[in-house]
Amino acid sequence: MSIEITGLCKSFGDITALHDLTLTVEEGCVTCITGPSGCGKSTLLSILLGLLQPDAGQVKGLEGKRAAAVFQEDRLCERLSAIANILLVCEPEVSPQAACGMLERMGLEKQHHQKPVCDLSGGMRRRVALARALLAKSDWLALDEPFKGLDEDTRALAIRELLAQSRGKTVLVITHDEQDIEALGARHIRLAAW
């Protein structure tokens, strides 16, 4: 399933976020999108996730497909624990042990798994958000700066887990970091500023 984007336009009042964007995201690959702030990367992701309607243009290849996402913000339920946040979006067959295992592989120690996420640091919360996206049932992944706030070691662990869990899936990653693109072995698309 490749994602075909043709002539996509989106404005917010006088501000143009996307103008006549055409690109293809290849099936089963990791594709990284980079570009200066305000060039419409997150807007593009929101359109692909069905959260925004484009002013013009079309997207093909996502019909009936199920997405999992890491948003620009973590978007976690603050009072729930890390495990509960993951299980909230997962199918019943995903066990708490599976969630626990993934968090541990991403370097989040067991003692933090049952704490409300409001008590976790930024980097810990980001890993919970990423684990949630990886364990949720999905056909493709939309990840907006998924490694934001992670140190070098945990970033490497998170990248390894992402590659292991998303094998064969179409993955779209927004990042500012050239090293992430290299570590992910990803195809690179650079958006121009408007």
């Binding site: 069905g50 959260l51 997405a67 978007r75 339920c77 729930l80 909230l88």
Partner: peptide, 21 residues
């Protein structure tokens, strides 16, 4: 939180879970 509602929409969280959590 509108962001959480969008998250629930993307992940197709059931209405029961949306209400409770």
């Amino acid at each position: 939180d509108a962001g959480l509602l969008e998250m629930a929409r993307v992940f197709r969280v059931s209405p029961r879970r949306r209400l409770l959590y």
